[in-house]
Computed example of a mutant assay.
Amino acid sequence: MVGTKGAETSSRLAESMLELIQRHGYSGTGLNAVVEHAGAPKGSLYFHFPQGKEELGERAVELAAARFGSLVTGSSTATAAVTATASAPATVGEVLGRVIDELAGMLEGSDFQLGCPVSVVTLEMGAESERLRGACADAFESWIAPVSELLVAHGRPRTVARALATAVVSMVEGAVIVSRAQRSTDPLRCAGQAIDVLLAAQGGEASE
C-alpha cells in the first residue's frame, strides 16, 4: 500500500506530466523530464506507474478533467459536480463567463504556452492509443455532463441541453487552440459571444 509520501510522489509526477504535456505535447514529453520536473527519486516513476508513459498520461488527463471541470461546478468529483451544478443559483451565462475568464487568464498568464492537455493528447494519440483516447473521451464527457445538467436546471429539455452542452464544450476547446496560435484571447472571447447567441436562439438568453 502506498503511504502518504508515496502518494505525494505519485501526485507530483502526475502534476508534472500534466504541465509538460500542456507546454510540449504528449510526444514531446519524456519520462526523464517528468521525473526531473517533479523532483522525484529515480526509479519512482515505474514504481507508481508500472505501465509507463500511457498510464501516467492517463492520470494526467484525469487530473486535467477534474481541474477544468471545477471551473464549471466548483467540485472535482463527477457525482458532486452534477449535483452542485443542478442546484446552483448561477445562471448559464455567469457560469460560462467564469469559464471563459479563467481560461483566458491561464492563456495570458502562461504567455500562451499552456493549453488544454486533453485536446493535445486527443490530437496526438487518439488514433495511436485506445487507452488514452478513452481517457480523453471520459474527460470531455465529464465537462459536457455538468454543462448539460446546468442547462436542464435552467429550463432546457434534456435532449436539447445535451446537444448544446456538446457544442459549447467543442467551441471552447477549439477557441483555446486558436487563441494559442494567434497569441490572443480574442478567439476565446468570440467563442463566448457565439455561445451566448447559440443559447439565446435555443430557448432564452444565456444570461437569463
Rank of each mutant, 00 (worst) to 15 (best):
S70W: 04
C136I: 05
G97Y: 03
V168W: 09
R67D: 15
S16L: 05
V160K: 06
V152Y: 00
A80G: 15
A127M: 08
S70N: 09
L45Y: 10
K42G: 12
D101M: 06
T29L: 07
L199T: 07
S119A: 13
K5G: 10
L198C: 09
M125H: 00
A14Y: 00
L103A: 02
L71K: 00
S142F: 04
E54P: 08
W143D: 01
H154F: 11
Q51K: 15
A135F: 08
V120A: 08
N32Y: 07
G203Q: 02
M171C: 08
R23S: 11
P146F: 00
A64M: 08
H154E: 04
F47V: 13
S110G: 07
E124Q: 14
A60Y: 03
Q22L: 07
Q113W: 04
A181R: 12
T79A: 15
L188C: 09
V34M: 11
S119Y: 01
E102P: 05
V172H: 01
V197Q: 14
G28D: 04
V169D: 02
G57D: 03
E130M: 13
G109W: 06
G155S: 13
H37Y: 10
A7Y: 11
V197D: 14
S76A: 13
T79W: 05
Q193E: 11
M106A: 12
G109I: 09
L18T: 04
P89E: 11
T185F: 08
R131T: 15
A104Y: 03
A66L: 00
A88Q: 05
W143C: 03
R67I: 06
A191E: 00
D138N: 12
L71S: 01
V72R: 11
G57C: 07
V72W: 11
A90L: 11
A65L: 02
G57Y: 05
L56R: 04
A181F: 12
L132R: 02
R23V: 14
E62C: 01
V176I: 15
V169Q: 10
V35L: 02
E94W: 04
G115W: 01
L107D: 00
C136K: 00
R23I: 13
F49A: 04
V118C: 10
E15G: 12
E19S: 14
